[in-house]
Amino acid sequence: MMGFIWFWLVAVMIVGYVVLDGFDLGVGVLHLFLVRTEAERRATLASIGPVWDGNEVWLLAGGGTLYFAFPLLYASAFSGFYLPLMIVLWLLILRGISIELRNHIDVGVWRALLDGVFGLASALLTIFFGAALANVLRGVPLNADGYFFLPLWTNWQPGLHPGILDWYTVIGGLVALVALTLHGALWLTIKTSGDLAQRARRMVTPLWLALAALTVVSLAATIAVRPVSLNNYFNYPFTFVVPLGVIASMAGIWLLNRNAQPVKAFLSSCLYLFFMLAGACWGLYPTLLPATTGADRDITLTRAISGPHTLAVGLVWWGFGMVLAIGYIVFVYAKFRGKVDLRADGH
């Protein structure tokens, strides 16, 4: 029971991270080719300025939660994905520094460089996160102790000894890139005005078409790479509501954006991300990290779960803390609601 609860709590943290940091990553990708003037760029970046580092906290809090609830998974996955994680860290560092620095520097060339770094780091991060999730879904070559070490790539085939990147995980990376760029475009239609908002809104159509195609391809690829992903769905047929949710939320994005209801379209995109991630988690459950080296080496819930007292204690403070945290988050988003106003904000 504890295992079931903590599995979904960690999943909630991941969803929280993807939904929130997702739009500022998407804005990072988009701003490179959407923005035409310095004022537009400032408005674009100001739309995420007060919130991006709070959004990134979800990654840290999620990582910490994973660490104490499933120490074996944390230890195995983090050391096994050593190289890509270090690259992710470097990208997170470059991204955070570049957005912050451009507020302090008024030389055009440097600003252009920082904007480029910010955009490129954002794009690479979305691809890495998508590929990371695909790696977990595909499985890794776990040894008898529950450890592994993956090279960046091998023969690009998901087999017994895959690399971080193969054709399957590249699809995962592309899904994340397109989904989050779309998410960011919807955010910009809410937060900016005028021409910029119009252009952001027009971006939605091509991104939506690409995402629809990639979603279908990635679902088919997942079933091909790990057919047992479907077991839970067939055992509990009502859970097919999750893929239905994916379809419904995709439709919602399309229709609501066309009817100029940007807030609702953005919320649909949040739901899309939620259903995609929930669907992936449900496909895994109760496995946490499948082994390509044989199902008996899978890292499962029961193998990875922390001691009972740790989890009971954790449930109390986690619940209390997250209620507080959601309180601050709602408060801050409410304070900064509405369109970006460059004259009112700044430091």
């Binding site: 910490g64 104490f68 120490p71 074996l72 922390s306 740790t310």
Partner: peptide
């Protein structure tokens, strides 16, 4: 993890 993962997660 069962011990110090706790304060680390609480920090977040």
């Amino acid at each position: 993890g069962g011990v110090i993962g706790q304060p680390l997660a609480m920090e977040g």
